[in-house]
Design a protein around this nucleic acid. Structure first.
Lengths: 193, 193
DNA sequence: AGCTATCTTGAATAAACATTCAAAATAAAG
DNA sequence: CTTTATTTTGAATGTTTATTCAAGATAGCT
């Protein structure tokens, strides 16, 4: 017997970055070989093929971002402060212009969900999980009395997610940090109303 | 001398559809040859290369969608009814699941704006034009007294555009028509508040 | 230490790719 | 009708692509 030499998480994060820089279709196996340091044979042995590597990267990406999400909210005194901190982090991501800070899930939704059923299923489920987390945040915010109004946590979560997706696309076309930040602030106001 | 045989608009609309179905990078020259009915040489003679064909398609797409946009608002009695009709058309687009009804500009923003400066410039300008049009709509709505409140037409236009971008991405992951429609209704309320 | 199952290596493969080009066709001008 | 400038044609080009595979290396078990 023999165990694999490479660290799966390290390899997947390297692949993630490669996919984020060029998108799935423009990222060649050559790019992935250079990014991960793995030879083609090893990639195929471990992940079956290029799409398998993407799907594995997507899972790892979701794990990493979920952790980050939780830690942002845990670092704040109440749910509303958490939302503010979270939107600040999204604005930073949008404004940085750094491809490796962009959202791999959103990139994949736009690039391949339409043509690949398997990716569509994974991405759809990730989106539902994100919704579930945000719904819980809005529930807590209501209980804490920091937000009021008739909208359900579910509705608020959906509007927030739509706003974040939109902000990320918009910021590719309009790079002015003040504009991005302004829209994000208004989004928070609307979603908490 | 000799004039071109093909109808430029027809060819560009065929290319648009091909790009919308598979995305820019997955659409091969073979696909474009079949879609347009043009031989490789003719495509290269008329549009320089594959990217040139995309850029030309993007311009034509923007012309077509701008016309559609104007006609939706012209068909309504006031600006608020226009906004309602417009968002209805966006919801239809999202819910249809038909790739040829999706937004080529948004697909291109997500797929290639990050890596291609020329495409980025074209798409950025198109986004600014769209903003300008929507800003004018919100100005009219205020003048007509159908919406009130302190937000500027510019701010409203930006929030609406972000909401539409977001809705289109969200609808790739969550296909329930009632959910999409509900989010769109709330978006209209927030943007007119 | 020796065995064996598994991983690593990287060259080889075949298909798909964007692009070119010279020959044939043809529309407009004279 | 002839000329001329331009387009159309489609096979050829050379590159890049994802994927395979047999040979070599090595970790863990006995």
């Amino acid at each position: 017997m023999r165990s694999a030499e490479f660290d799966r998480e390290v390899v997947l994060r390297a692949a993630m970055n490669a996919f984020m820089e060029k998108g799935y279709n423009k990222t060649s196996m050559q790019d992935l070989k250079l990014a991960t340091g793995l030879h083609p044979g090893s990639i195929y042995c471990a992940f079956e093929n290029k799409k398998g590597l993407l799907l594995a990267s997507l899972e790892q990406y979701n794990l990493d971002r979920s952790e980050e999400l939780k830690s942002i909210f845990n670092g704040q005194s109440d749910a509303l402060s958490g939302l503010r901190a979270y939107l600040d982090s999204i604005v930073s991501e949008c404004v940085s212009g750094d491809p490796t800070q962009s959202c791999l899930s959103q990139k994949a939704i736009n690039e391949i969900a339409q043509t690949d059923e398997q990716a569509q299923a994974v991405l759809s489920q990730q989106c539902v999980m994100w919704q579930g987390f945000m719904k819980e945040v809005f529930s807590q915010a209501s209980q804490q009395g920091v937000i009021t109004g008739p909208r359900s946590p579910q509705q608020r979560a959906q509007s927030l997610i739509v706003g974040i997706y939109g902000l990320r696309t918009f910021s590719q076309a309009q790079k002015d940090p003040d504009v991005i930040s302004g829209i994000a602030n208004q989004l928070l106001i609307d979603v908490c109303r």
